[in-house]
Design a binder for these strands. Sequence first.
DNA 1: TCTAGATTATTGCATTTGCAACTATTGTCA
DNA 2: TGACAATAGTTGCAAATGCAATAATCTAGA
Lengths: 150, 150
Amino acid sequence: MYKLTDSVPYLLNRAGVRIAEVFAQRIAEDNLSVAMYRVLAMLKERRESTLGDLADVVSVEISTLSRLVGTLAKRKLVSRTRPEDNGRIVIVRLTPQGEALTERLMPLAVELERTAVQDMSDEEVAALKKALRRMHSNLPAMSGKGKVAT
Amino acid sequence: MYKLTDSVPYLLNRAGVRIAEVFAQRIAEDNLSVAMYRVLAMLKERRESTLGDLADVVSVEISTLSRLVGTLAKRKLVSRTRPEDNGRIVIVRLTPQGEALTERLMPLAVELERTAVQDMSDEEVAALKKALRRMHSNLPAMSGKGKVAT
DNA sequence: TCTAGATTATTGCATTTGCAACTATTGTCA
DNA sequence: TGACAATAGTTGCAAATGCAATAATCTAGA
């Protein structure tokens, strides 16, 4: 029998919101949002990315991301380039300052994660991550929203 | 070594966003948001609640919730009452129409969850829920944000 | 080659959100 | 009792968000 408070989407949201709130606090003094941090950390991981790919990976609307990357660029934390061989896409990269900031913040993320999973074994954490990845791939990406027949 | 895309907060957000997107699609025809659904489902579970308790449980700012409950009330899906013995609090309840709508939507939530966890065993799902609850309780509630010494 | 369609990102606009300030009520304790 | 503090909710306002429309570029087929 169904109970909201025992359902996976609810529990997922609740844990996700809380962990994001805590992290948001920690990076607020650098005037960064969680989404901004994710963009930076993703670029640290991938070296560069187009806006669209970033949007997928960071789970944010591309229009939102466009503006968000705009402000990061204004702060010289990332650079935006339109390649000569492809004038549609925008390549986003970390600047040295962006990289330095990211490196400074990553330990906070590590520590936060450790706090969150403090009483779980490595196996439990691994199982959790696996489950989270599975759920993601079990559900359809909602790019073209309510479109039915174009 | 830390990688954003292997971190729990990131995976949590990614799964949570996607599952919420899918559910949002399904209930969009009833002009409900996911948060609205959660309010309704919570009231179905608890029969009644104050705004503050609802906010905690639904992981939403109380100011946001105040307006959200206002629109639900306008649509006659919930009622708001200030008890005579306590004029500060507001008791929120489902109306019969709200209850009917909730009962109609709950099977969609059940089915969505089944899709999300389709390839997991009951034990795996139980472990997932346990982990999500643990992470929630391992992290501090951020009610009074950056307050340090009042 | 030229055009129709697809891809990628940006911007306009309305809605939603969150913080802070405010109102109203209740609790406390001198 | 009488104030002062604490609690609960609402609202103003600015910022963030999402969808739709637009602009710009690339791709593919006739």
